[in-house]
């Protein structure tokens, strides 16, 4: 009996903790978002965040996209040739990349790169009193540190995914033409024939959400880190893990929203 009560108690503690955590995170997100719309605006901070999240993530996202496109073409051709449906390779590649793999893989890559860097930077600022110093210098840290990064995440990831979409298709094209012997013109027209605008737009919308989640996790864990270098390390890990899990979970939710009608 008492073992059962202990279990209920710890379950309760866990649930209360989870609710508190979710509440705190929501408040943090709302406050951060609200600062995006209220002056003063920190353009330099925004540009710097765009550079870090967007531009510096380009190489890794580009490589991921090209290889994914190549693998998709290979895999689908071996699979589809069993059904004598070789001509579907091009459409399969473009649909998988734009609707699903572009946003998700770019999101996971950026979470590992930029999300971790964000958590580490803000976390270090927190444990070395720099966040407090901002406050004493008439600067709201939520506005100066968090808001520009949230906005940059929201804007930069769709841009990255546009690049990833193109390079993913290019990867498929290379394999299709060089290895599988498709006619380049036919491959391209196959690619475009079945592609609809909402395939691309839904992928970009997903990317916006993922970018926001990455920046939110990086900022939130960094902002609340404590306890020196070890605390910053823990914050960085939590930021990456949380962002990755949230990306996959929201990917399901958004797909359900967009396509399951």
């Amino acid at each position: 009996m008492s073992a059962f009560l202990d279990f209920v108690a710890s379950l309760g503690r866990f649930l209360i903790g989870a609710c508190l955590g979710t509440g705190r995170l929501t408040l943090f997100a709302v406050e951060g978002l609200s600062h995006i719309f209220r002056p003063p605006f920190y353009g330099r901070q925004f540009l710097r965040a765009m550079l870090e999240i967007g531009y510096l993530s380009l190489p890794v996202v580009a490589l991921t996209a090209v290889f994914t496109g190549m693998v998709l073409a290979l895999q689908s051709s071996t699979g589809l040739s069993r059904f004598a449906a070789d001509s579907a390779v091009a459409s399969l590649v473009v649909l998988s990349v734009t609707r699903e793999l572009g946003p998700v893989l770019a999101g996971l890559m950026v979470a590992g790169r930029a999300g971790a860097a964000m958590a580490a930077e803000i976390g270090t600022m927190r444990v070395t009193d720099q966040v407090d110093a901002l406050t004493t210098l008439s600067t709201n840290p939520m506005k100066y540190l968090v808001a520009p990064r949230l906005l940059a995440g929201l804007v930069a990831l769709p841009l990255l995914v546009m690049v990833a979409d193109i390079l993913g298709v290019l990867g498929g094209f290379i394999i299709g033409v060089v290895k599988l012997g498709f006619n380049p013109g036919i491959y391209l027209s196959n690619t475009l024939d079945f592609l609809r605008t909402d395939d691309v737009v839904s992928g970009l919308a997903k990317a916006g959400v993922f970018g926001f989640l990455i920046a939110l996790m990086g900022c939130y864990h960094g902002y609340n880190s404590k306890g020196g270098a070890q605390g910053v390390g823990a914050a960085t890990t939590s930021a990456v893990v949380a962002a990755s899990v949230l990306i996959l979970a929201f990917d399901y939710v958004l797909t359900e929203l967009f396509f399951a009608r």
Binding site: P40, T124, D129, Q130, A133, T136, L137
Partner: peptide, 28 residues
């Protein structure tokens, strides 16, 4: 209120002069 923190708490993403002028720039 101006504050000198125990460990300095300088912003390491900004050059020294921007650190010193931060309060002036922040309040325009």
């Amino acid at each position: 209120i101006g504050m000198l923190f125990q460990n300095g708490a300088l912003f390491d993403s900004l050059p020294v002069w921007e650190n010193v002028a931060f309060g002036l720039l922040a309040r325009r």
